[in-house]
Design a protein around this nucleic acid. Sequence first.
RNA 1: GGGCGGGUAGCUCAGUGGUAGAGCGCUGGUCUUACACACCGGUGGUCGCAGGUUCGAAUCCUGUCCCGCCUACCA
Length: 939
Amino acid sequence: MTTELAKAYDPKDVEPRWYQYWLDHGVFAASDAPGDARPTYVLPMPPPNVTGSLHMGHALFCTLEDVLVRFHRMDGYNTLWQPGIDHAGIATQTVVERILKREGKTRHDLGREKFLERVWDWKAQSGDRIQLQQRVLGVSADWPRSKFTMDADLSKAVREAFVRLYEEGLIYRDKRLVYWDCEVHTVLSNLEVDNEPAKGELFEFAYEVEGGGEIVVATTRPETMLGDTAVAVHPDDPRYTHLHGKRVRHPFLDRTFPIICDAVLVDPKFGTGAVKVTPSHDFNDFATGKRHDLEFINLLTIDGKLNENGGPFAGLDRFVARKAVKKALEEKGLTRGSKPHDLVLPKSQRTGTVVEPMMSTQWYVKMAPLAEPAIAAVREGKTKIIPEEWTKTYEHWMTNILDWCISRQLWWGHRVPAFYCADCDHVTVTREDAPATCGGCGGASLRQDEDVLDTWFSSGLWPFSTLGWPEKTPALERFYPASDLETGYDILFFWVARMMMMGIHFMGEPPFKRILLHGLVVDETGDKMSKVKGNVIDPLDLIHGATFDAVIEKALPGAPHDEALRKFKKAYPSAGQMGAGFASYGADAMRFTLASYSPQAKRIPLSPKKIEGYRNFCNKIWNATRFALGYIDGATVGATPPRATTLANRWILSRFAFAIDGARTGIADFRLDDASSALYQFFWGDLCDWFLELTKPTFNPSEALGPAAEGQKDETRDVLAYVIEGALRALHPFIPFLTEELWHRVPRAPGAPVSLALASYPTPATAPRDLDAERDMAAVQAVIGAARSIRSEHEVHPGAEIPLVLRTDDARVAALLVAETRAIRTLVKTAGAPTIEARGGARPHGTVMSVAAETEVLVALKGLVDPAKETARVDRELKKVEKDVAALEKKLALPSFADKAPPELVAESKAQLEELQRKRVALGEAQGLAAELGEAEKP
RNA sequence: GGGCGGGUAGCUCAGUGGUAGAGCGCUGGUCUUACACACCGGUGGUCGCAGGUUCGAAUCCUGUCCCGCCUACCA
């Protein structure tokens, strides 16, 4: 590649180029070839819903996982990132039903078979959209292995799992109270129900007691009184002792029921102290009903209307019935008032509708026997949860786990493989599609269960069903268990815990070594992204760029422009400074941003400004490479560090070593924030701000260099080439597109692979740590900094050259400063070479002074100085030093410190104090100089 | 009601015993031939509050006040 690099980096020119290249070269493929002896790194990707399109949450997990995956691939692992799609039962069925509705049809008009055809059609059309979007992010998954949870092989796995669990007695059918979604007409597991606080009323009414009198009860759901089969009071409540054993009469229905005593249900201090009991529609009442052997009367139809047991109210919708019942009670003179009441409404996570507790026969998985080994696996460290704090939550949930209701009254999903016999009550559970005969009586009229399984049942098998289970495939052999599982903490129970249980049960060992959990992407102010709030950002808009007009059109469709814009900017204050919209920041910048958030944060407040900042970092990488390319042509880049003798060269290799260590440690600990920041600081802070500047006087000397310096030039060229190439490799997992682009332009080691994605990740052997060089360089930097500070404080024009005198009594420092004369001269911009001498000489008028690294830094400013400013500057420095001196003196004065603190620390503190004291003396002199300036000003 | 997490610079966040850090913002100066998506300076925090342990605490312990999240059957 010889084309010139543009002055500014534009991701649009670079990013689209590389994905196809990677696919063409099979870069992402894992290998299950028997001869492949590399260690494996396996990461099952959380399968996005088939209904989904890419959102910020996907962008986050794709980034984090891609970093892990690309790192391990480069680090020599046979890496499998297993992608796929989840069939998402309720969500998908709802989407397709909505399409049908527009055609004026329901799924029942079509029938089950035709409806399923429609779903498959829809899936074929838009089911892989999200996978195409993932490519924009650079996701390096092994696409040819992609699986869909409804694929034939995965369906086979589901059936196998069901049958085995059934045969082991771990799956059973039972009639009990469940959460019912009246909109989709299906049962939900307790995990799929969200409890939302709401304002309601506590409505009181009276039951007439047989034999005279009344008893007043309170309820938030008056319509359920139609299913009441008892009134409960506390056995010790004196107010009701006289009613024990009596019965009450139902005002609308021709039945009576008992007044019972129950200390569990009734809190005498709440309400009237008397509780109506509706065993079929309330979880507490259900238990009470079981305790007292009460009658169970189901009131509701599957779509939330009152059934025939509702008497005069039969046929009414539950909410209509509520009003009607209240009115009817009113008419009978039985209402006894109402008051506002805070309650908690159970709502369907999917449809948002209030779910109803209802009696129903469903399939369940017995959880306790499965949970126990899953708890043990974490407790024994076979599987580690990171961040560790989630371990407690996991244990707590797993030890209190309820049996899992797995049947759903949907059409889209894996059908329950159970068959009912017309001739006997045997249930045939089988791997066959259509068994011919009943396993009980041998009869031939069998009818399959209508229900399908909870989507999470199939996702629970994901780590092994995707590899071919129940067949013993080479892939299963090689890639189970996985190394890591990375996902949001919000599905720890839905998915992760279930994979743990299923994996251990069917495969005999936990499905992964580590569970890595990340937080939720929220808006810049910390609010959850939601369509209602209008604060949703499409990651693709940040990657490709978008005007705010386009952005809010998506965030709050149909809303008035100004209102939507106001809401959006409120959610993203930093966007207020960004003009008319987002620039095309590129996938690399977004990835780096997402990787820079600490994984233990539960919330990840997305800041557009931060993405802009990392776009700037990409530009920095681009331009640093552009600069380097001007000098490193023809440099030799080897597998081992080049010869480095100059301070700058030794130093940058050492800083590189430090950065690599930071990156590797961060990635290993799932602290991608630490890893990315180590690389960022190295590249920008060390490489660009110092090293590149230091190469300039070598590459472009202001005066002719001797032969020795010419040698340095070659050395510096090789070091620069080596560090740039290595840095691109180190950054690649985070910034894959840009680094790949640039890597093809810089000199590489002989035998380099076709893609940077296949190059080796820098190792500790890549560069030597050189603490002497770091110490010396820090001294030089401090001296340069002090001189620059003086320049800047006195508003010396950046182009002007200043005379610089450096005074030190430390022979080693003096030698160092002499050796680094050219660096100091260039970076401070001095007039001629700086003078380096011993302390104590005279100081000409107009000289200002600072102290750094045991060195007096003197600048003669020839009357350019503002005495007041100089006094202020010195005072400021002096104040700082005095504060530090005071703190140290105080500490050292304590006898207990010298006695009990580690001796190294005491010695170190003493040395520090001495240095600071010397500095204080020097600054005192500087103060004198500043004062002289003031006098000199006066005529 | 229970559990968990958090309160550190104007903002968003790192920092698990040894004299407080980053990015952004703010501010002064520069278009210095890699980069103004930049460079060189500067400002800015009694680490929620109160006790305790320790030679030493943002960091450990106790209490307390706020803020989140999860969980729960007060009718």
